[in-house]
Simulated scan of single mutants.
Amino acid sequence: MILYFTADLMSNSRVSGPARANGIPLRVIASKGGILETIDEETTALLVDLNPPARDAISTIQEVRAAHPDLPIVVHGPHVQVDLLGQAREAGAEVLTNGQFHQQVDAILAKLAEPA
Rank of each mutant, 00 (worst) to 15 (best):
M1W: 07
M1G: 04
L3E: 01
L3V: 08
Y4P: 00
D8M: 00
L9N: 07
L9M: 11
M10E: 13
M10T: 10
S13K: 04
R14S: 09
S16W: 01
S16I: 12
P18F: 04
N22L: 15
N22E: 13
P25D: 14
R27Y: 00
V28K: 07
A30R: 13
A30P: 04
S31L: 04
S31M: 13
S31K: 13
G33E: 01
I39L: 10
E41S: 15
E42G: 12
T43H: 14
T44S: 09
L46V: 00
L46Y: 05
L46I: 02
V48A: 10
V48D: 09
D49R: 02
N51E: 12
P52K: 07
D56V: 00
D56I: 02
S59P: 08
T60L: 05
I61E: 11
E63D: 14
P69T: 09
D70L: 12
P72Y: 10
H76R: 05
V80C: 02
V82S: 04
D83W: 15
D83S: 10
L84A: 01
A88R: 01
R89Q: 05
L96N: 05
T97N: 03
G99H: 07
G99D: 13
Q103K: 14
D106K: 11
A107I: 02
I108Q: 04
L112Y: 03
E114S: 08
P115C: 06
P115Y: 13
A116S: 13
